[in-house]
Design a protein around this nucleic acid. Sequence first.
DNA 1: TGGTCATGAGACATATATGTCTCATTTGAA
DNA 2: TTCAAATGAGACATATATGTCTCATGACCA
Lengths: 186, 186
Amino acid sequence: MTNSIRPSSKDAIIEAAFDVFSRNAGASLSQVAERAGVGRATLHRHFSSRDDLLRALARLAIREMDEVVEAACADVTSHSEAMRVSLEVLIPLGDRHGFLALEPIEDDADIQREFDRQQRETEEMIEAVKKEGLLDASVPTAWIVQAYDHLLYAGWEAVRTGQATPAQAADLAWRTLTSGLERKPS
Amino acid sequence: MTNSIRPSSKDAIIEAAFDVFSRNAGASLSQVAERAGVGRATLHRHFSSRDDLLRALARLAIREMDEVVEAACADVTSHSEAMRVSLEVLIPLGDRHGFLALEPIEDDADIQREFDRQQRETEEMIEAVKKEGLLDASVPTAWIVQAYDHLLYAGWEAVRTGQATPAQAADLAWRTLTSGLERKPS
DNA sequence: TGGTCATGAGACATATATGTCTCATTTGAA
DNA sequence: TTCAAATGAGACATATATGTCTCATGACCA
């Protein structure tokens, strides 16, 4: 394989970048390189500029989120189930989710379009779940999207801080979103 | 009043800083000054350094959140009601809330202690609401804190983007937290 | 063993952010 | 009007971040 650069280094940079930028959007490239255990020059060999890195991260995050959702929804039989399993597989990608929410990538039309498409797909999923009767149609879809996104992020934080496993966090977030945290008389 | 610097300029800087930093934690002081409609030198007259500004914002945010919660809870008759009205009055302070969550102020022990105190008070409030029977005691308090914080932030975003008034956002966030967004058969 | 390639370290120039200073202008009160 | 304080504009020096480059080293492969 006289192919190209070793993959491990590039991957380490990408993982470190998600980790660092999801906590601090203004972090320097030195911090990213250090977290990756890599020289700053090596980072520039893989990503010519800061913007180049940010764009690569955004594209990757969108693609990964698409992939896990598509894979998880392969066998589902309802939109409600799709919404539930999407939540579960997206929680471990919370750093990607947080990165996309925090980092303003306004200058790239491709990424903006893909980002908008994901947002639209989430809205359509929620509309479909309303039609299936699980969610209250009188609650604005825009609010359900907000609650879904933020509870997803809350679930990732619970995982990151060791409070829960991804499965437990998904259970808690899903219960919160659907039936709430009230004490049930049943 | 030969007191000191005019207050309006300082206040404008503080409001602009909350606005700018809650969207982008790494924003420059030039951006803050511009948003405030103020020269960069004036910003430095009020706040000697970036850290000075950040610390002042953190202290103010904590104090303001304390004040509105205390005022709102003056007449309540239960912890459940206190939790509900706290959510309502904190949503308009969502920029303060987001600033405290996003900006890492690790070097100041005072602020850290106050921040921890607020977190602890939220936990105690939730424990009390569990005892009153509104919230399910089998759900971890840590998760309820997460959900409360994130739905509060979601509510502020709904207000900021014009999707809802503060009162509507508080209703939606409270309903989500307590009874969820399921279609209710009743 | 020899050669190739990715890498780390670090020098270097540049860009941007930060903090200080000066000065002319404006504001508000007496 | 008159005066003192606050301000905006901008020069200036410094610090940090960024991007490019070179060179020696180490890993992997033939």
